[in-house]
Amino acid sequence: MSIQHFRVALIPFFAAFCLPVFAHPETLVKVKDAEDQLGARVGYIELDLNSGKILESFRPEERFPMMSTFKVLLCGAVLSRVDAGQEQLGRRIHYSQNDLVEYSPVTEKHLTDGMTVRELCSAAITMSDNTAANLLLTTIGGPKELTAFLHNMGDHVTRLDRWEPELNEAIPNDERDTTMPAAMATTLRKLLTGELLTLASRQQLIDWMEADKVAGPLLRSALPAGWFIADKSGAGERGSRGIIAALGPDGKPSRIVVIYTTGSQATMDERNRQIAEIGASLIKHW
């Protein structure tokens, strides 16, 4: 067993022997301040990774656009098919120029040779490549099948209805392509620590998230040296922004954090800054 596999296998073990965790309302004060600064709703939840206990939450059962955070769930569904012998990570998928959609920095470079399922998941999570996500959605049967996968996990809230990039439209009061912070946090925890996926697939999923290259201005910008984070960000229309993450000190994750916002007129930089400040408060009061 590799060191990384050992780390993920012992996530519940280490967490069980940690000192009790206590909620700190100071972080919620910052979440509410972010709402004021952005002029928009902000949803927040913080779960203990081992027990699933909610440590703090704000608007945990209000719907927010998922945006690209759905790509972690998508690759979880792909990995479940791999575990069941219905898919192979090494299978190569070929596609054409007509398949390319807006923001496809990886797939646009491989029109000639195609990409493997493993490479597509890596591109979808680490670079948020939209064509990679659409190609992977095709392998599982489309958005409705991802929703069905989530329902089978016990998540009857999260739903995907459309493809990239239309799913980022974020129309107010439109339930399409949305989740709730509580539902997303619980589902992410199941994917990373539950028995739904094999140990190898859980490790692969967290490795992809740990290698995320496009979430630097968010929670990662607030992390002290030595902290662990595996995350996936999302951005959408109407001032929408979000991030889902597993993080913790001492090089291992111990909490799940989900943050979503929508309806702001603020710039992307300002949305990023507010999420980073929430992260800084979380870490300060850990």
Rank of each mutant, 00 (worst) to 15 (best):
K109Y: 15
G263D: 09
D113R: 11
R91T: 08
L38E: 06
Q97A: 13
G194N: 10
L79P: 00
L47H: 03
D155E: 04
E210H: 10
W163H: 09
I3G: 05
N272D: 09
A266W: 06
S80Q: 12
A77F: 10
L89N: 05
L100V: 09
G39S: 13
M127P: 01
L199R: 12
D33C: 15
I93Q: 05
I140N: 04
E169N: 11
A170Q: 07
I11P: 05
G194D: 13
I244W: 00
D250I: 09
A15D: 02
R273A: 13
K144L: 13
Y95I: 11
A9M: 14
Q37L: 14
E166G: 12
E87A: 07
T27H: 05
K109Q: 14
I229Y: 04
T139L: 11
D48Q: 08
P25N: 09
T69A: 03
T116L: 08
G279R: 01
P60T: 12
V72Q: 02
M115W: 02
E277M: 10
M127A: 08
C18G: 10
R162N: 11
F149Y: 10
L199P: 15
R255E: 03
L74H: 01
A245L: 03
G43K: 00
V8K: 15
L89I: 07
H110L: 08
R238C: 14
E270Q: 12
G43F: 01
M209K: 00
A16R: 04
H285P: 02
T112S: 14
L188D: 00
G154R: 07
Q204E: 14
D48G: 06
A16I: 10
S68V: 00
I275E: 01
Q37D: 15
T27E: 03
R91A: 07
R91Y: 06
G251W: 07
L167N: 07
P12K: 08
A183C: 08
L167I: 13
E102S: 11
A215K: 05
V257H: 01
A230K: 01
V42P: 00
M127Y: 11
L111H: 09
I171D: 13
Y44G: 02
I140M: 07
P105Y: 05
Q86K: 12
R189W: 13
E169H: 11
E35M: 04
T69L: 02
S104D: 02
S233I: 00
K190G: 13
K109G: 14
A266Q: 12
G142E: 05
L167D: 03
A84R: 12
S221L: 10
L55Y: 12
L120Q: 02
P172E: 13
A200P: 13
S96W: 12
G85N: 11
H110A: 08
V117Q: 03
K32H: 12
F58A: 09
A215P: 05
F17Y: 12
L150F: 09
L120H: 03
G248L: 00
N98H: 14
D231Y: 04
V257R: 00
E145C: 12
V117E: 03
K144S: 15
I243Y: 06
N130I: 01
E270P: 03
E108R: 11
V78G: 01
M1Y: 01
L49Y: 12
M66P: 01
K284A: 13
V82E: 05
E169Y: 11
A23K: 05
L196W: 14
P249M: 08
L19S: 15
V21F: 06
L205H: 01
R92E: 08
D155S: 02
C75P: 01
T126R: 07
L28H: 12
E35D: 05
A84K: 11
A132K: 00
A280Q: 15
T131L: 06
N168K: 02
A246H: 04
L111S: 08
D207N: 11
T262D: 07
F13H: 06
N50R: 12
C121R: 00
E195A: 06
K30S: 10
L79I: 05
Q4S: 13
K144N: 14
L146V: 11
A148F: 11
G52A: 07
V31T: 06
L146A: 06
A183W: 08
L218S: 03
Q4H: 14
L79S: 03
S281L: 12
E46L: 09
P143S: 06
E237C: 12
S201W: 03
L223I: 12
R81P: 00
G226D: 11
Y44W: 03
I11C: 14
R81V: 06
R273Y: 12
S221H: 12
D269K: 12
L150I: 13
G251F: 08
A170F: 11
R189P: 02
Y44E: 01
K190C: 10
R118L: 12
H94Q: 13
G154T: 05
T178E: 02
R59C: 04
G194Y: 08
N168Q: 07
Y95C: 03
E35R: 03
G114N: 05
A215S: 09
G141L: 04
T112Y: 15
S128Q: 00
M66T: 06
L47A: 08
T147I: 08
F228P: 01
Q88M: 11
D174Y: 03
T179Y: 00
H5Q: 12
V106G: 06
A133D: 00
A280T: 11
A16P: 09
R59M: 04
T186K: 13
E166R: 12
G141R: 06
F228S: 07
A15K: 04
S104I: 02
A246T: 11
H110R: 10
Q203H: 14
K213V: 11
H24Q: 11
L10Q: 06
A23T: 04
V78E: 03
V42Q: 01
H151E: 12
Q37F: 14
L192W: 08
V106P: 01
